[in-house]
């Protein structure tokens, strides 16, 4: 202590100033960041809304954490910088038990909290729209006894097609969904790994050959949504996108009837509806 130029109160003043700057910066910048920096789309489905909340919570933890480092570095670079030609030595401090323990406890609590939150969200009915494999641990809740509408998503190079098993195994290249009803996607692939990503609905599920990957969503308002392939699947991967539509139930029934009429001549050539389809190995697909 005797050789240290900073006295005890001075040392505490540094710490207090830094903490003050950090608290003020966090209080001001965190809401601004959450408001102005876009998060994934919100409001089109239960999954999208849920993920918006998840991302918001993470933002609220992440921004102050980043600001802690930014404020610290800025403060230290200004306050503790030495520029003279003579090397000036700093205080010989090897550690501090108290600070070390506080840090370990705080990070552990934060991590445990985030784990608990994430687990609660992923185990909630519907599992936040992510693909759950053939035997879903968390099926969507079906209030009011309305059964989910199964829709099979078939990835192939380089398009998704859709089968509606409850409507005679109809297969169509267009995706139209009714809103307010639980949709049960069964995602599979005919060739390589694709990933079915309905962005505005907050659904993503890999399409694996020979695998039935189930994902749930309940669209909550009519409108369009983007369908993209989110796993590199060959040269035309970048063009594997389409628009889907969420419509009212009567409109959906009308659309299904029209599609059935349109595809009637070919539908009976299709293989019977199945969880997955395994064509023989394709040796050179591109």
């Amino acid at each position: 202590m005797s050789s240290d130029k900073q006295s005890q109160p001075e040392r505490h003043r540094d710490l207090l100033w830094f903490l003050l700057i950090w608290v003020v910066a966090s209080a001001v910048l965190t809401p601004l960041y959450i408001i102005f920096v876009p998060l994934p789309a919100n409001g089109n489905s239960n999954d999208a809304t849920g993920q918006h909340l998840d991302n918001g919570v993470l933002d609220a933890v992440a921004i102050p954490a980043v600001l802690l480092v930014v404020c610290f570095l800025a403060y230290a670079m200004v306050r503790f910088r030495q520029t003279g030609p003579e090397i000036e030595e700093g205080p010989r401090v090897y550690g501090h038990r108290g600070l070390q323990n506080v840090w370990i406890v705080v990070t552990s609590v934060l991590v445990t909290g985030l784990f608990a939150f994430g687990t609660w969200r992923i185990l909630a009915p519907g599992a936040a729209g992510s693909g759950q494999g053939a035997n879903p641990l968390s099926p969507a809740s079906t209030k009011g006894g309305v059964s989910p509408l199964p829709v099979q998503v078939i990835g192939q190079q380089w398009q998704f097609t859709y089968r509606y098993p409850t409507y005679g195994g109809l297969e169509t290249p267009r995706l139209v969904l009714p809103y307010g009803r639980v949709i049960e996607f069964h995602v599979t692939s005919l060739d390589v790994i694709h990933s079915f990503w309905a962005y505005e609905l907050g659904v993503k599920a890999d399409a694996n050959p020979g695998v039935d990957n189930v994902a749930y969503v309940t669209p909550t308002r009519p409108g369009g949504f983007d369908v993209r392939c989110a796993e590199l699947c060959g040269i035309w991967h970048g063009y594997m996108f389409a628009r889907g539509r969420v419509v009212t139930r009567p409109a959906f029934e009308r659309w299904i009837a029209q599609q059935k009429r349109f595809f009637e001549p070919v539908t009976h050539y299709l293989p019977p509806y199945s969880d997955s389809y395994l064509p023989p190995p394709l040796r050179r697909g591109g």
Binding site: L58, A65, A127, A128, Y199, G202
Partner: peptide, 27 residues
């Protein structure tokens, strides 16, 4: 490094958290 890796580590939380990873994955 301290700044960059802080941002890198924190954005990793969005990927490690399965619900928010639904959108972040593959993007």
């Amino acid at each position: 490094w301290i700044f960059n890796f802080m941002v890198g580590g924190i954005t990793g939380i969005y990927n490690s958290d399965a619900p928010s990873d639904t959108t972040a994955h593959g993007s």
